[in-house]
């Protein structure tokens, strides 16, 4: 077990290193630099700015400087937000993204479990088809259109919920629903098919043959065995939700971290892009590791390799 853990951790570190390097080089071949402005800077001014951020050094030095920084826990300065460094920015915005992400995850689980169960229970009936239709809705609309629709209906027409900004529970309802819609749909589908799969397996047949009630079969046997595939996707899904979504944060004016995946690119704020990418990757790799550990805990048949 310990060997497995160490191996996986080393693997995770390699992934992080490759991701960091890849992003670094992709950024440096992307046209446009952080200090390209409409009002072009005079060369002597640009020289001082470049010297401040070591941008005048060869890329190899910049690269090693960056990696050394990361190892020491320093994510570097932000080229755009001059009063703060990347660590401050992540520390300010990640908690907001994380709370919204967890709300959205809760929302999608709360929605997908009943829908998936009902659909599986009434499989192939109109109820099933209706449930699937509802689920399909969640993945058939671009996020920003869904957000627009929710704002139009619930904020402007009905006046129930706040149209934007992050604060009390009221302000969290619409972004949670917008962010959670697609995962909810996805999870509903997944649960339904996982339950149907297990329903076809021998031990379920045996249970049925023993005369157990269908609901007991569904909850006791089918559901608990269907959790494995759900668990598998839950890892990466959580990592994605927790690091924030650009679209949702923009549409609802939420001060989260997801925005930087876009704005830091348009600002060419290299350290900030690298910072948020590393946070994302670390969370993703961590979540996957956790899922693998939970596996071997839940299902002894799957041995840690």
């Amino acid at each position: 077990m310990v060997r497995f853990l160490i191996k996986r951790l080393l693997h995770a570190l390699v992934v992080l290193w490759v991701v960091a390097s890849l992003t670094f080089f992709l950024l440096h071949i992307t046209p446009g630099g952080p200090f390209d402005r409409e009002r072009r800077l005079p060369p002597e001014v640009l020289a001082n700015v470049a010297a401040k951020y070591h941008l005048d050094e060869p890329w190899w030095n910049q690269y090693t400087r960056y990696l050394t920084g990361i190892v020491q826990g320093d994510l570097g300065p932000s080229y755009k937000y001059l009063d703060r460094n990347v660590r401050d920015i992540v520390a300010d915005t990640l908690p907001v993204s994380a709370s919204l992400g967890i709300f959205a995850l809760g929302f999608s689980l709360a929605l997908s479990f009943p829908v998936g169960l009902i659909a599986a229970y009434y499989r192939n009936s109109w109820t099933d088809r209706f449930c699937l239709f509802i689920a399909t809705l969640g993945i058939s609309v671009p996020t920003f259109i869904l957000g627009a629709l929710l704002i139009w209906l619930f904020s402007l027409q009905l006046g129930w919920f706040q149209a934007g900004r992050w604060g009390d529970i009221n302000s969290a309802v619409l972004p949670t629903a917008t962010l959670g819609a697609a995962p909810a749909a996805y999870l509903s589908y997944l649960l339904r098919s996982a339950i149907l799969d297990t329903l076809g397996e021998d031990f379920v047949r045996t249970a049925r043959a023993k005369g157990l009630k269908e609901t007991t079969v569904l909850f006791k046997h089918a559901l608990s065995n269907s959790l494995i595939p759900v668990l598998t996707v839950l890892g990466p899904l959580t990592a994605g939700l927790v690091t924030g979504s650009f679209v949702v944060e923009y549409v609802f004016a939420i001060p989260g971290m997801g925005r930087f995946f876009i704005t830091a690119v348009t600002d060419r704020d290299y350290p900030l892009i690298m910072g948020v990418t590393l946070v994302y990757t670390a969370l993703l790799v961590g979540a996957n590791l956790l899922v693998d550990l939970l596996y071997s805990f839940f299902d002894p048949r799957i041995k840690a390799q």
């Binding site: 991701v19 992003t23 992709l26 990466p236 650009f246 876009i262 990418t277 994302y280 990757t281 993703l284």
Partner: peptide, 8 residues
């Protein structure tokens, strides 16, 4: 798979 889609 570990890269953020949108960024890429």
């Amino acid at each position: 798979y570990s890269l953020p889609d949108l960024l890429i």
